[in-house]
Design a protein around this nucleic acid. Structure first.
Lengths: 242, 242
DNA sequence: CACTTAAGTTGACGGTGTTCACAATCTGCT
DNA sequence: AGCAGATTGTGAACACCGTCAACTTAAGTG
């Protein structure tokens, strides 16, 4: 009844089924990239695959489910990229680690603008991503940022007084609650610092991506500088990254 | 031929025409607010107005032009709100001015989430806002932020050494070019600082608006704290805002 | 082989943006 | 007053969309 394979069925069937699903998603992704989320349509995907639109319903119960899959995939792709950057720069200072991860974040966003808008805004009408499916995927990416902060703290590169100083009384208990939830096992000050970093990172990237920055500004140079600046007053006291 | 009124025509005609246009935009805005940009459709607007869909084409050459009008209106509304905040807090310190304007910015975003996503992302498929029409409208809002920074500098509340220190060599000439263009008549360091503020502001708001922040965090408390932190980070040395 | 299950097609329904030919209305002019 | 012309609205049509139900075809299993 349901298109999802509850029973293993035959291995061969299952294999080709997965391949078809992957082809659908790939085609959809391509159409998504061609011109924003503009021209994405089930019928279009089916047409390009030489299928009828209704055939796709054997694989996805609705267009929104296909979209959700794309959202999850995009989050995963971003997280993968960040983790690669994290591993590659793990030996250096925490500050360098942050800058490298941030650059990877921006690079991914610029290479996959349609995916970025897909996951960080709602470019498709009538579609709201279901949190229960997308949130875990998103959190892998956020987790990398938290790991960077964790490393900074562990390496003694964060000024504890400064971290404490940045906390407003209203915010402290909330951050403690977040920390206690297990999602983000860091002291409140470090969490606050990480949020500052994330907001700046995300804000600058969306401004650049949607062409809200003056055109004479080179996004890369501005970005690099801003990432260093944000480190600085968050209480980072380690070696200056390049 | 063209729906736009090149000739003044009769004053009466012109008046009722403007009223109709306004009613169309209002209806569209309402539909937009009802559930995101999801359910916005020309036919829906026409239906609610007791008109045929094709009748709207007497007033807007296409759906995208209607959207562009909404975008411009939204930018204008935001700018109005910011200017009110600017005037109201003009007497206080630059830091207080910044926090008040930033709060107004967030308040507007939260009260008009659909408008915010409409102007700062691309929530409608196939639609890309034409820059020549939207950019001037957007710049009024950015201009307020720049005025805040101007005031901070004029009041001697910005540490000039710090501003200088924050500039990367790659970025300086670009910011100087921007400044020279007349759009943003501020020294490069101050421009950089203003961009930092804007990116943080914008980033945090989009994260909150799209529910990418952990739910136990109160957006308002986090926001206030972050706005103070960002001030600090960019070399603000005036009295601490509340 | 017969039987079950999955994959795909056909055709429809109601929705969308858009166009075009036509009718109704209002305005200005003589 | 009456006519000409512009303005505003309608109705039907076109091509597209997501979705569903009934049907046919193919594949795998006992």
């Amino acid at each position: 009844m349901t298109p999802s394979a509850a029973t293993p069925a035959s291995p061969r069937r299952e294999r080709v089924r997965r391949a078809t699903i992957e082809e659908i998603k790939e085609t959809a992704r391509r159409q998504l990239a061609i011109e924003g989320a503009a021209t994405l349509s089930l019928r279009g995907v089916a047409r390009e695959m030489g299928l009828t639109a209704s055939a796709l319903y054997r694989y996805f119960p609705s267009r929104d489910d296909l979209l959700t899959d794309l959202v999850v995939d995009a989050f995963t792709s971003l997280a993968d990229r960040l983790e690669v950057a994290l591993d590659a720069a793990w030996e250096g200072s925490g500050g360098q680690l942050w800058v490298d991860v941030a650059r990877a974040y921006r690079a991914w966003a610029i290479e996959h603008p349609s995916d970025y808008t897909l996951i960080f805004s709602t470019p498709v009408p009538g579609y709201e991503a279901p949190e229960d499916r997308t949130k875990p995927a998103m959190f892998r990416g956020v987790g990398v940022l938290l790991q960077v902060m964790t490393r900074c703290v562990a390496a003694g590169e964060m000024d504890p007084d400064r971290l404490e100083e940045l906390l407003s009384p209203a915010l402290r208990p909330q951050l403690e609650a977040w920390s206690a939830s297990g999602e983000a096992p860091l002291p409140p000050g470090a969490l606050s610092a990480a949020l500052t970093c994330w907001a700046t990172l995300h804000g600058l990237i969306t401004l650049e991506l949607f062409h809200h920055l003056p055109p004479m500004l080179d996004g890369g140079a501005l970005f690099d500088q801003q990432m260093v600046v944000v480190l600085d007053r968050i209480g980072y006291i380690g070696p200056r990254p390049t």
